[in-house]
Design a protein around this nucleic acid. Structure first.
Lengths: 152, 152
DNA sequence: TATTGTTATACTCTATAACTATA
DNA sequence: TATAGTTATAGAGTATAACAATA
């Protein structure tokens, strides 16, 4: 069934009670996850955006432009976020040997340590998931994978 | 086992690969949900916060103070958000007959219509969940319920 | 010419503190 | 006196446009 005929004739999936409830539950998960993330960041005197950039750079140093792509924001915003992380000694800008226009942002030792403690303080993994058995977590993983289309 | 001894001796649940993957998948869901919500809001020239308040008031008119509690922000912020919704004719402030200090924020007819179109443009319910059968959605619902501790 | 990062500007969201009008 | 809402202020994130250095 193509999307046009589905929209025209069939009842949309979102209108059934089961789908609506799942969407609402996902909304609750999203809200809780977001709140916990902001709270964990605040405990280290970081904003959510600063924590996200620091976590990103801990995986791999990258050009300012690429950070903006990851954050889905304009490159001009990244300048300020990295500025504030740099002032606090958590991140540094390095020249890119291959292209002198590019600046590579990389975490300092202190930045990596802060990122590590930040990850540890995210209780989201423990609290709600601890209530599920290994088998149930496997089922949940597979359902989420399929929901997200395997690609992630 | 109390939390102190758990932290000191037992391996934390978050360290196993399965839990980490589920957490990462949830993170992906959260990011996608958030992006879609912001995009849908922007299509109606609303910010995320404005869209959330409008959606909230569509369920039930409420005092400014209560909006702040729902948004988990300071009451002073709500003044500005409702101001901007009111200028655009989407929301209005009404006196509370029972307490003259209170102002009840309520959506206008146009506000309700905008909120309705906003809900319809949220594809999150259709796209990812459409890939799951009714049975699978039921399993997902039950797992999310248990994860969130039944209370929601 | 095109691209990278930055600056300048303006708007929104946010918290804090002080103010007003009610209770 | 306590509470509801507002105002004033300052910091942070955001997009847009214009700029310098480099490709």
């Amino acid at each position: 069934m193509d999307s046009a005929s589905a929209a025209a004739s069939a009842p949309a999936p979102r209108t059934d009670a089961l789908t609506l409830e799942v969407v609402e539950l996902i909304g609750t998960v999203v809200a809780r996850y977001h709140d916990e993330y902001e709270e964990a960041a605040a405990q280290h005197s970081l904003t959510g955006a600063q924590a996200r950039v620091l976590g990103l750079l801990t995986l791999e140093p990258m050009p300012m432009r690429r950070i903006a792509q990851k954050l889905k924001c304009e490159p001009s915003n990244v300048t300020g976020i990295v500025d504030r992380l740099e002032v606090r000694g958590l991140v540094e800008r390095r020249p890119d040997p291959a292209d002198r226009r590019v600046k590579l942002a990389a975490p300092t030792a202190q930045g990596r340590e802060t990122a590590r403690r930040l990850r540890d303080s995210l209780d989201f993994a423990r609290e709600p998931l601890a209530q599920l058995s290994t088998e149930e977590r496997t089922v949940l993983r597979d359902l989420l994978r399929r929901m997200l289309g395997e690609a992630g």
